[in-house]
């Protein structure tokens, strides 16, 4: 965010503002995080390490990374295409399309899982055909990927659309009039302009993809070491009363989130410096 030259109030005003904001953040966000960390290291660092390098935990980590590696690029390409169409052009149905892009935000994660069961489950539209061909979608990797794609669908687009709308298309038009091709214009003019927003969108999409629980839980089948993603593995451990191990894996996810968020801050700082 831009630093604002004009700041609020005097010393007391600022103090009150800081106190209020820090109290809110501390109570609502930092405390739950501290709970996770405290429980994770309740048995010491060695136990934490053992918990996150356990074979099932490792396979959950790999699965989560794999799913993310598929989901994030797909949704990024979509996000850029959608932003290009929606931000750079005025057409009929534009605001409907904008709402449809937001749609997955409004869908309960549970429902996001359910719809893929309705499509690909044994009694779903494609269920009979899939089982005839011995294909598995739900309760296997494809289902997990689909549910994650759905849930993280809007993140990149949502980040880019306002940015690109604000930027307008004068620069692109200038490049085109100078004889650049469409793709050249996109690569040399648009991409550099949106790169920080794009990266922020990717980072959020990535964080959400790794952490998705509700939707994946419905389509996963919870097969230990096979279709348990890291968030599901946390639940499995919790249900096995291995609370410390559960929180250890959760802390890993929080750690990923924090690394992601620190990256984001760096991205923003760089973005601000570039803009200056």
């Amino acid at each position: 965010m831009k630093e604002h030259p004009k700041q609020t109030g005097g010393f007391w005003g600022n103090l009150a503002l800081c106190a209020a904001a820090l109290a809110i953040m501390g109570l609502l966000i930092v405390l739950p995080l501290l709970v996770v960390l405290k429980e994770a290291f309740a048995g010491g660092v060695r136990l934490w390490l053992a918990s996150v390098t356990d074979q099932d935990a490792l396979s959950a980590i790999w699965l989560t990374l794999g799913v993310t590696a598929v989901v994030v690029p797909l949704n990024t390409v979509f996000g850029v295409a959608a932003a290009w169409a929606i931000a750079k052009f005025r057409f009929k149905g534009r605001s409907l399309l904008l709402s449809l892009v937001d749609l997955p935000f409004a869908v309960s994660p549970v429902v996001a899982g359910l719809i893929f069961i309705l499509l690909f489950g044994r009694h779903g539209w494609l269920g009979t055909w899939l089982s005839e061909h011995h294909l598995r979608v739900v309760f296997a990797l494809p289902g997990i990927i689909l549910a994650t794609l759905f849930v993280t669908f809007p993140f990149v687009a949502r980040e880019l659309i306002p940015l690109m709308t604000e930027q307008g298309s004068e620069e692109e038009q200038a490049a085109l009039s100078l004889g650049a091709t469409g793709w050249q214009t996109f690569a040399k003019v648009t991409l550099p302009n949106i790169k920080w927003g794009l990266l922020y969108g990717i980072i959020l999409c990535n964080a959400r993809a790794m952490g998705e629980f509700g939707a994946v839980s419905v389509v996963s089948g919870h097969i230990r070491g096979e279709t348990s993603t890291l968030p599901l593995h946390v639940e499995v451990l919790y249900n096995e009363y291995s609370f410390t191990a559960a929180f250890a894996c959760a802390s890993l996810l929080s750690g990923l989130a924090i690394v992601t968020l620190v990256l984001k801050t760096i991205v923003e700082l760089k973005g601000a410096r570039d803009a200056a």
Binding site: R208, P231, A257
Partner: peptide, 10 residues
């Protein structure tokens, strides 16, 4: 952004 990233179950 932490609540975005933390699994909801956690």
């Amino acid at each position: 952004d932490l609540p975005f990233a933390l699994p909801t179950a956690v």
